[in-house]
């Protein structure tokens, strides 16, 4: 299977196999008018299998949050058909408005217009906790 290389855009590589669709939805890629390719279960020497997303446009999107989904993820910025920048995405210190707190006692369950924010509590265990009530992200 061949997907044309892109001239100006973003390649999100080394996505853990199976997480590509989740990232596609989270970054609202179905709203984009440019070409977007989601490749699933691509052979990878490092990971065995991986997912890749190619976006045929340089967009201003919050890429830091990607680390939450997939620990080895890399983001390649392509300009004029060349690799202009390669970013290794680690675990973000904070995640805003991506997850919702499941603790029924948390203020976020009743207060309107509030940002749902989780902080990285334990990087080794990849644990995030709600900044308001300290409940673990599920």
């Amino acid at each position: 299977m061949k997907i044309d290389s892109i001239r100006n855009g973003i390649v999100i590589d080394h996505i853990q196999a199976g997480s590509g669709m989740q990232i596609y939805k989270m970054l609202h890629m179905d709203d984009l008018s440019c070409s977007v390719a989601l490749l699933r279960n691509v052979q990878s020497r490092k990971l065995g299998q991986k997912d890749i997303i190619k976006i045929d446009a340089v967009l201003d999107i919050d890429l830091d949050v990607l680390g939450y989904f997939s620990p080895n993820i890399t983001v390649n910025i392509i300009r004029d058909g060349k690799l202009a920048e390669k970013k290794h995405i680690g675990l973000p210190a904070r995640i805003t408005d991506l997850l919702k707190c499941k603790n029924p006692r948390c203020i976020t369950t009743t207060e309107q217009g509030i940002h749902h924010i989780f902080r990285l509590a334990d990087p080794a265990a990849r644990t995030y906790r709600c900044i308001y009530c300290d409940a673990k992200a599920e």
């Binding site: 603790n103 006692r105 948390c106 203020i107 207060e111 509030i114 709600c130 308001y132 009530c133 300290d134």
Partner: peptide, 10 residues
């Protein structure tokens, strides 16, 4: 004082 956890932070 509030029954909801995190209310004072808000």
């Amino acid at each position: 004082r509030h029954p909801k956890e995190g209310a004072p932070m808000v």
